[in-house]
Design a protein around this nucleic acid. Structure first.
Lengths: 334, 334
DNA sequence: ATGAAAGCGCTAACAT
DNA sequence: ATGTTAGCGCTTTCAT
C-alpha cells in the first residue's frame, strides 16, 4: 500500500494525499472526504523511511543507556518516552552494558537513522565516539549527555544531571556530621561505572578533608545484594557509604545478621533510593537521584533545541539526601 | 557524507563502495584498501533510511510494552535487546500505559518504519490494532505477543509467555494446600491490566472449586505498596493472594504493623517476584514470571522466523512458585 | 571486478 | 486547490 494506491482510489494524485496527511487544511473539503475514505479503505500506513529521505526531517530520537533493566535507567527512559511521544517523536534504544566500546558501535548504528537527537548516558566516551557525536552535532543532531553534570571533561555537549563527586562528598558529610571519624566506601563491582567511582572519590576527599580515616574497598563481584552482605565482614569503620543502594541494603542485612545494631554499631548510606531501601527496617539513608526527571528534562531540552534554542545547554538537577534509620537512631518506629 | 562522497574520495563509483560495505570479498583487495581509507577519512555513516528503502530489508524491531520503568517489562526489554543486538537488529520502543487505544496509535506509528518484527504485550487489542497487526503479518512482519499464552482469544499470532488464569489458580492452590478455607484476592488498581484480572479469575475459580470462601476486592488507587498496606484492614480471610508483589509486600508490612503474625494470622502470596519480596521478613511467597526469558525467547523466536521458521509459534514458559515465609511458618531464620 | 540505469516511497519546489 | 518534475541515498538489476 503506497500513497499512489490511496491516490488512485481517491481519484487524485499522490501529492494531494501527501498534503492532506500533513496539512489537511490545504486540500478542498470535498477532496479531503474522498481521501479519508480511500485512506481507511486501503488501510494505508505511511512509509517513514521514504518520508525521512525525501524531507530530511525524521522523528527518531536515539537513547543510549548502560542497561535497560535497572530502575535507574528504566525510569529515565520512561521520562524521555512520555515527553517525546506527546511531541510525535519515537524512541530507538540501545544498552551499552557500561562498555564504551560497545557504546561507540551503537552510536554509529543509531546515527545511521539520522535521529533528531541522541541522548547518551554520561560524559566519558571513546575518542571515536566523541568524533561521531561531534559530527552528528555539527550536522544538526541534538546531543545530550544525561546523568552527569561536570564542567571539566565535558566535550561541549548539552548535559542534564548532577555532579557525582559532589554527591559522594555529601554522603560523607552526612556521616561526618553524625560524629563518625572512621569511614569506609564500598565501590561498585561494575567495571565502567565511572560515576560510582567519582562518588567514591568525593566521599574519600570529604572524609580526608575532615581528618577522618577512610577505608576504600571494592565489592565482591556478583549479585550486588549478596555482595553487600559479604563485604560487611571487611568493614573497619563506624560508618560506610556504598556505590549504590543494593550494596547498602545487602550490607544492612548482613550487619544485622551478624548481630550488629544499625546505626549504633554501623551507620550506612547508599545511593540511588532504590525501592528496597525504604522498606528495610531500619530504612537505608540514601541519595535520591531524579531518575525520571533526568529523562523528562532531557526530552524537554531536546524539544527546545529542535525549536531553535541554544544548541548547548547544561542543566543541573538536585539529588536530595533521604535520611532514614540506617544513619539516625532517633527515628522511632511508626 | 554520502556514498558518492566516499566513492569520489576512493576514485570509484558509489556502487563499488556499497558492495564493499555489504560483501567485502566481492571487490578487488586493492580497491578494498583504497575504500577503507576513504571510509575512515570521511567518517562516513551509512544512511539506513535510504538502505531500507532501496533494499526493502530493514533492521528495526519494534517493541510495545505497558511501561518501561517497571522491572517486569524492563527486564523483558533487556532480554530482547541483548539477543537482537547480536543479530544486528535495533529496538524501537513505545509504552502504552495499559491503554489499548494508545497501543493502536503506537502500532500504527511503529509500523511506519517497516519493522522486521513487532513484539507486543498481551493478546487483547482493539479491533483496529488487530487489523493492523494482521496486515503487517501478512506483509511479512513477524508479530509476537508476549507475556501471555492462551489458546482461545488468541488472534493467530505467535505467543511467548504463560497462562495467567493458571497462575492465579496455582496461587490459590498453594494457600488451599496449607489448609486455608477463607481466601481473598486483591485486584490491581491499574485499569487495563487484564492479566492481573485473569489471575484473579483463576484464583477465585480454584478457591470455589475447593469449597473455600473467596473475598475479591480492588486495591485502592495510588502507590501500590501503600495501597497494599491500606487494604489489609478490609481483609476477612486467613490467606490472601495479590495481583502483584507490591500490593502483597504492602499488605505484609501493613499486617505486621497491625500486630498480626504472618503467616499464622494471615498468609500472603503475591505475583511477580519483585526484588522487595525476597528481602522482607518473612519473605513474600510469590510466582516468579520469567521476565528476562520472555524477552530472550521472543527474540530467539523472531530470529528463527526471519530465517524461515513457521510464522506462527506458541511457546509456553514456566512461572514457578517461590515459597517464602509469608505462607510457611516452618521456614526458620537463617 | 566494476559500472550505468532505474527505482524504492515520499516530499520540495515549482508550475498551473 | 491540485499536478508535474526532480531527487533524497541507497540497492537492485543488467551490462561491460
Amino acid at each position: 500500500m503506497t500513497l499512489r494506491d490511496v491516490a488512485a482510489a481517491a481519484g487524485v494524485t499522490a501529492i494531494t494525499v501527501s498534503r492532506y496527511l500533513r496539512s489537511p487544511g490545504q486540500v478542498a473539503p470535498e477532496t479531503a472526504a474522498t481521501i479519508r475514505h480511500a485512506l481507511s479503505a486501503t488501510g494505508y500506513v505511511p512509509n517513514k523511511q521514504a518520508g525521512v529521505l525525501a524531507s530530511g526531517r525524521g522523528s527518531i530520537v536515539a537513547a543510549l543507556v548502560p542497561n535497560l533493566a535497572h530502575s535507574i535507567f528504566a525510569e529515565t527512559l520512561e521520562g524521555l518516552s512520555g515527553t517525546l511521544e506527546s511531541a510525535g517523536l519515537e524512541l530507538l534504544v540501545a544498552a551499552s552494558g557500561y562498555s564504551t566500546e560497545r557504546e561507540e558501535a551503537q552510536i554509529r548504528a543509531l546515527l545511521g537513522w539520522a535521529p533528531r537527537a541522541l541522548v547518551i548516558t554520561g560524559r566519558h566516551h571513546t575518542p571515536g565516539a566523541i568524533k561521531l557525536l561531534r559530527e552528528a552535532h555539527a550536522g544538526g543532531c541534538t546531543v545530550i549527555e544525561m546523568w552527569d553534570h561536570h564542567g571539566r571533561g565535558a566535550q561541549g555537549f548539552s548535559q542534564v544531571g548532577f555532579n557525582h563527586r559532589d554527591a559522594g562528598r555529601r554522603m560523607a558529610e552526612h556521616l561526618l556530621q553524625a560524629g563518625h571519624r572512621r569511614l569506609a566506601y564500598v565501590d561498585s563491582a561494575v567495571v565502567g561505572d565511572y560515576r560510582a567511582r567519582e562518588r567514591g572519590d568525593g566521599f574519600v576527599a570529604a572524609a580526608e578533608a575532615a581528618g577522618a580515616t577512610v577505608q576504600r574497598l571494592a565489592a565482591p563481584a556478583g549479585e550486588p545484594i549478596s555482595a553487600g552482605r559479604e563485604v560487611v565482614s571487611q568493614l573497619q569503620a563506624s560508618a560506610a557509604g556504598f556505590a549504590n543502594d543494593h550494596l547498602g541494603c545487602g550490607a544492612l542485612l548482613g550487619a544485622q545478621a551478624a548481630g550488629w545494631r544499625v546505626p549504633q554499631d554501623l551507620a550506612l548510606i547508599g545511593f540511588g533510593d532504590f525501592e528496597l531501601a525504604a522498606h528495610l527496617a531500619p530504612g537505608l539513608t540514601t541519595l535520591a537521584p531524579p531518575r525520571r526527571e533526568i529523562g523528562a528534562q532531557a526530552a524537554a531540552m531536546l524539544l527546545a533545541q529542535l525549536e531553535g534554542a541554544a544548541p548547548v545547554q547544561r542543566l543541573k538537577l538536585d539529588c536530595p539526601l533521604v535520611v532514614r534509620g540506617s544513619t539516625q537512631a532517633r527515628q522511632s518506629k511508626p
